[in-house]
């Protein structure tokens, strides 16, 4: 009696869907706030989107300019003033030193989680292929020039330019 060797059954391999069909997906963030705690949401999500292979843009406008202004980007602050989520007695929050202390605390927490500081995070996003844009009106209002901005900022563009650019993108305003 002969036995025929059965070829190993080639079950269809379960291959993760790396979503090549999603390559058209596009995400845009409008970063309009310049505090430490409001800078991170855009940076974290933009970085996550890039890791998913999604075309990603961040438009920095108004106070968000502080995130890409070389003079301020390394020194963003977090304040508990008018922020009940810190659960501090409201009357204490405007006292001298409270903002500095809260900022220090938040930086420490971020560092413990190995989250990069703002300039390094922006570099990471640029290295991952993210697009950084400065709002022209804010640049004019604040009398800034290209030289004042983080080197990886691709351009100073108008609101109209940005709207054209993000055609079809999922957009978040922060």
């Amino acid at each position: 009696m002969t036995t025929t060797e059965k070829a190993p059954e080639q079950a269809t391999a379960v291959v993760p869907d790396f979503g090549e069909d999603e390559s058209e997906r596009k995400i845009a963030f409008v970063a309009s706030k310049g505090t430490l705690d409001m800078a991170y949401p855009a940076l974290v999500m933009a970085n996550a989107a890039l890791g998913e292979g999604i075309e990603t843009h961040i438009f920095f406008t108004f106070w968000g300019m502080d995130i890409i202004n070389k003079k301020t980007m390394g020194d963003l602050k977090f304040t508990p003033i008018a922020n009940p989520a810190t659960h501090m007695p409201a009357a204490l929050t405007p006292l001298p030193g409270v903002t500095a202390m809260a900022t220090h605390q938040m930086r420490k927490q971020l560092e413990e989680l190995d989250v990069p500081d703002v300039p390094e995070f922006l570099q990471l996003i640029a290295d991952a292929g993210g697009h950084l844009w400065a709002c022209k009106m804010s640049v004019d209002m604040m009398k800034l020039t290209d030289d004042d901005l983080f080197d990886e900022v691709e351009g100073i563009i108008s609101a109209t330019d940005f709207i054209e650019l993000i055609d079809g993108a999922q957009t978040m305003f922060i």
Partner: peptide
């Protein structure tokens, strides 16, 4: 991805070239 770059010493740009689009998922797979 960040740990691969900071601890492993592989630049982010390089990782995106080696494992296009979704480096973190592709390399772990």
């Amino acid at each position: 991805l960040r740990r691969v770059s900071t601890v492993g010493g592989f630049p982010t740009k390089e990782l995106f070239k080696l494992f296009p689009k979704k480096p973190a998922k592709k390399m772990s797979y």
